[in-house]
Design a protein around this nucleic acid. Structure first.
Lengths: 186, 186
DNA sequence: CGTAGGTCGTTGACTTGTCAACGATCATCG
DNA sequence: CGATGATCGTTGACAAGTCAACGACCTACG
């Protein structure tokens, strides 16, 4: 029975949920908030499992796996540091340190960029590719188990559409996926 | 946590699932992977913005905001540490440290649990409630801007259903929301 | 040219989380 | 009762990310 009145400092235009009963909600429960919370909870719980499984089975974090994958997919199996940072959604210093780790493990090498002397590229080593392939089975298995396996095709289509619509406008630089240093891109 | 991904766009009309020539996809592109990637990307980009906005406007991280909210919603505006940890999806030590911070800021106080001498409760202070209310306007505004505002009611219903179906089976302990120490609850 | 300002990747200092281990307390069962 | 084992919250040591600042380099414009 504490605190019955909530000061409505928001615009009273909408159907204000004026504090009704004794147990006033602290923040108005807006429609859609349930979806938002599901989103956060699902992400936290799933990535926690996936990260753990990847760690014990292959000594890789999810971020490291992702970085290896992004490099492997790039033409020449090499990516400029800043591009990689953007794809993995990490700061520049974050990518520097992540590549440090991968390099120490022998999964990646650094190479100077031929067209821009400031640039560095992360290049996948054969060992790194091997590790990525082996980790991919673990990872995809987990994604299926925790995510894909519980959703049918319609669910997945809806998710991709909705979440894409949400994510796309937040892209950092909207420049069209400029790749790297190689003079001629395949 | 960082930001993973699984599989980007394939090159032109490649349908081969079998490992092909040198430029073969490293991992097979499975249907549904697009949804998974959208999920990860959307989460990373949105939470980054929300966290930043909350930080500059109120000096709160998203996790701290979430913890305050969970405490505020609990009966008596108090929650046992382990329950809080589960709701915010943090380890026990993580919650200890987060509550340390909130306590140092005067937003929360610790109280011994009356029914279990091992237990501690985090209790919201009036100041903490005030801060939560003020931060909520910023936060909800951001959630609307980046998430709710780009989705219609059907999208939201679909998201909540799909993601709930994915998140629910991953709940740590499936015990039915047992609250805390207070003897009798309404 | 040449200099002013932007970008690139790295580093130091710091924040925020995890895990393993600990003392204290609870619960069970002899 | 008393021992045994689980659970609670905290702590030390560490991991992995951020920001601010740096030198090196690119670019553009006088």
């Amino acid at each position: 029975m504490p605190t019955p009145s909530v000061s409505p400092r928001t615009q009273p235009a909408a159907k204000a949920r004026i504090a009704g009963p004794a147990t006033a909600a602290v923040v108005a429960d807006e429609p859609g908030i349930g979806a938002w919370r599901s989103f956060l909870t699902a992400h936290a719980r799933i990535t926690r499992r996936l990260d753990e499984e990847l760690q014990v089975a292959h000594g890789l974090s999810l971020a490291e796996y992702d970085a290896l994958l992004q490099i492997a997919h790039a033409p020449g199996r090499r990516v400029r540091m800043n591009v990689l940072a953007e794809r993995v959604i990490l700061s520049r210093s974050g990518i520097t340190r992540l590549v440090d780790r991968l390099e120490a493990a022998g999964s990646v090498e650094r190479a100077a960029c031929t067209t821009d002397a400031r640039g560095q590229e992360a290049v996948l080593t054969p060992l790194g590719l091997e590790r990525l392939r082996s980790a991919a089975t673990t990872h995809l298995d987990g994604v299926r188990r925790y995510f894909l396996g519980r959703l049918d095709a319609a669910d997945l289509a809806g998710l991709e559409a909705s979440l894409g619509r949400v994510a796309d406008p937040l892209a950092s630089g909207n420049h069209p996926t400029h790749e790297g240093c190689s003079p001629a891109e395949a």
